Simulated assay, not measured.
Amino acid sequence: MQQLIPGPAPVILAIDDLRALPRATRLARTSRDGVQLLQEHRDVFIDELWLDHDLGGDDSIMPVVTLLEEAAFHGRPFHIGTVYVHSANPVGAETVVRSLSHWKYHVRRTAAQ
């Protein structure tokens, strides 16, 4: 009988100021920490990226979105299976979906898991 060798664990990153998101392997609570988290995973395939638009106070996910857009603009998009946008802010969520879809990231609007 042949034994299956387990593959690498999926990389599931989340940027959200409040939700626990238990499936996430790494979680950032601010846009600044989110940018750093993505930079740490620059050359790694990210299976899932969960984004909340409003991150408390004046903070939002837009610096992270800008990082992803600029990477794609320069021909080096991040390697992400699916970006899930789970914000309770419908206008902000739609802005994120539209912006990242324009740069050919696979994006879905969904409820937080």
Rank of each mutant, 00 (worst) to 15 (best):
Q113F: 12
D52G: 06
M62N: 10
R98C: 07
H106K: 15
H106Y: 13
L37C: 07
P22G: 00
R42K: 09
P77M: 05
A112L: 01
L51Q: 04
V11T: 10
A111Y: 15
S99M: 05
Y105K: 13
A71D: 12
F73W: 10
W103M: 01
V107A: 09
L37N: 06
S101R: 10
P6C: 03
Q36S: 13
P77K: 11
A24C: 09
A28L: 10
A24T: 10
L49G: 01
T82F: 09
A14R: 10
V65P: 15
V97S: 08
L67F: 13
L37E: 03
P6D: 00
Y105M: 12
H53I: 06
P22W: 04
G81Y: 01
M62D: 08
L68E: 03
R108A: 09
L21I: 15
T110Q: 09
A93K: 08
S87C: 06
D17C: 04
L13C: 07
P22S: 02
D33R: 02
R29W: 12
P6Y: 10
R108N: 11
F45H: 14
T95H: 15
W103R: 11
M1L: 14
Q36G: 12
R42H: 00
A93D: 04
E48V: 07
H74Y: 15
Q39A: 01
E69C: 13
S99V: 02
R42L: 09
A71N: 13
S31T: 00
R98V: 01
G7S: 09
N89P: 08
E48Q: 12
S60E: 13
G57Y: 08
A28M: 08
G7I: 02
S31G: 03
L38F: 00
Q113S: 06
V83A: 02
G75L: 01
R76W: 14
